[in-house]
Design a binder for these strands. Structure first.
Lengths: 149, 149
DNA sequence: ATTGCGACTGAGAACTATTCTCAATAAGCT
DNA sequence: AGCTTATTGAGAATAGTTCTCAGTCGCAAT
């Protein structure tokens, strides 16, 4: 999806939710696009100091409600935000236990199929209505090394 | 693993970390065992009112550091705690988007194998040192129904 | 263009889950 | 039993996030 297609898609989703695609919201999407990985509010505001923190939180919430953004609860102290899977495509995360950074990762289609089938069976058994799955790898990124012990 | 084996395992891990297995910590483990699913601090304290909230937080942190407990960052407002995988065995979660409750789930070994292989390859490509994976299903539990729209 | 109205913004206050503090207590050791 | 050190509990402090509200902007109809 090209940048302009993404903006159109976001605009469509906001419109459907009765929301406007204002300058601040557009800038938020641009920032998420340019950083290209799940980021914290702090990173967003540092990259785009014109965005007020309170508006960033509010607008990320609006964008999440309309399905343009996903909020990732994080093991560290800060939640991370990324463009949603309908926009970015289905993917997974490499989460560093040391520095808390999150990188995107993709798995072969065969793996996804096996996972989907396994999860569908488990959901069915539990009377659970599945919306999406999350499959993340926790460990140490290239910049951080694993603890010595 | 029987209840007494679990307590022995926890005691071993705490001892290794230079920590005591006190009454409060034992009660914490008992509570996690009896509830049998990831729970919030609030649920723990409500179930075992003799546990001070501040001590519960502190001890869950100690237990996590020694590898007896896992803390799950949650999409809602409260983190959840559960016994660690070395004790409970490898498993996954069904996370309800409505009520925030988390239930345990197991996948067939074949699925786990495929996932492990796929993740190992992805981690290798990214220069990432993997510790564990998390594979959770997000949706609506049997008690909550999916939104109408 | 102009106007009108409701949605949006920004700065800070408020909220609340979690962590910290410290005097009192319990655990383990000799 | 006595000593030493870790642990506890109640509340204060911290900090990420949400809320408030007066001022501003976007959009549509005139």
């Amino acid at each position: 999806m090209s940048t302009s297609e993404i903006h159109e898609e976001v605009a469509r989703r906001l419109d459907q939710a009765g929301q406007r695609y204002t300058r601040g919201r557009r800038r938020l999407i641009d920032t998420l696009l340019s950083l290209g990985r799940p980021v914290t509010i702090r990173e967003i505001v540092e990259n785009e100091p014109e965005l007020a923190q309170s508006s960033a939180y509010r607008n990320l919430d609006v964008l999440q409600s309309s399905g343009a953004v996903r909020r990732l609860p994080s093991p560290g102290d800060f939640d991370h935000f990324e463009l949603s899977e309908p926009i970015l495509g289905h993917h997974h995360h490499l989460i560093c236990l040391q520095c808390g950074s999150i990188a995107d990762m993709h798995l072969p289609d065969e793996v996804e199929e096996v996972v989907d089938q396994g999860l569908a069976a488990a959901a069915h058994d539990a009377g659970f209505f599945a919306v999406q799955h999350s499959l993340d790898l926790h460990g140490y990124c290239a910049g951080c090394s694993a603890p010595a012990n």
